[in-house]
Amino acid sequence: MAKNEVKIPKATLKRLPHYYRFVSTLHNSGVDRVSSKELSEGLNIDSATIRRDFSYFGELGKKGYGYNINYLLKFFRTTLEQDDMTKVAIVGVGNLGTALVNYNFTVNDRMQIVAAFDQSQEIIGRTIGNITVQSMEDFENKLEEQGIQVVILTVPQQVAQKVSERITSAGITGILNFTPQRINVPEKVQVHHIDLGIELQSLIFFMKNQ
């Protein structure tokens, strides 16, 4: 069944990048094929869940053979649109923003932070890696000029909503929100919330109750 003929669960879509990264690692290691059991062990995801996720996209493998790595790699690149470079901007260059710019998605050559913005005069003009922090006054012009599609939001919580409104007004339809604030955006905008406090609390809970 083609992916445009069925509604793919959000949980499945969120797992696709994990599958892609693991398959890329296998490919780089010279592996030709992999079973759902091996995927399960490598990703710590139940094999039944993996088979169900893959079933939404048709026949990706063969029973008794497993999955062809080259085929899976091509499939995930196409599905995740990884044949094109996605340009990302950081808004808010404090400690976390600085760390993310330094990291700069080096594990994936199809996503790259190309710009960083802040409103503090103490931060504007600072060079982090190969990126110079720019003023928010130039935000809209630089987005268009550099072809930026996604923004990572790492501003203080109290200004997150206001800044997100400016981001979406500039035409950005994808935000990775690292602030605790749950921002309200237009329906066409995709927001993924990364609350480090909640993630850590969840980790500790599962550690104590496994």
Rank of each mutant, 00 (worst) to 15 (best):
H192R: 13
N102G: 13
A2S: 15
N209R: 14
T86K: 09
V163R: 04
L176N: 04
N130G: 08
E199T: 11
V151M: 04
V163L: 02
L96Q: 03
I175K: 04
V88N: 01
F139I: 06
R21S: 10
L143N: 05
N95P: 00
N44A: 15
Q181L: 05
V31F: 05
G129I: 06
V151R: 00
E140S: 11
V150W: 02
N28I: 03
K3E: 11
R21A: 07
Y103M: 07
T98S: 10
E122P: 03
V150T: 15
I204G: 08
G66D: 12
N108G: 06
V31E: 09
V163Y: 02
L143C: 07
N177E: 03
A2D: 14
Q190W: 14
S169I: 07
Y65K: 15
I8R: 03
T78I: 11
E5D: 14
A89H: 01
P156A: 07
Q119S: 12
V31W: 03
G92E: 03
Y67H: 10
L196H: 08
K208F: 12
S135T: 07
Q201E: 14
S36T: 08
A170P: 08
R77H: 09
V133K: 01
E140A: 15
I194K: 02
K7E: 11
R21P: 01
Q112A: 08
N102W: 11
N104L: 05
Q82G: 10
N68D: 11
D138C: 13
H193M: 04
G174C: 10
N70K: 11
K74C: 00
L43S: 05
G92Y: 02
L200C: 10
I167P: 00
K208C: 13
N95Y: 05
E81N: 13
V101N: 00
F117S: 02
K3V: 13
Y65Q: 14
K188Y: 07
L176T: 00
G171E: 10
K3I: 15
Y67V: 05
L39K: 02
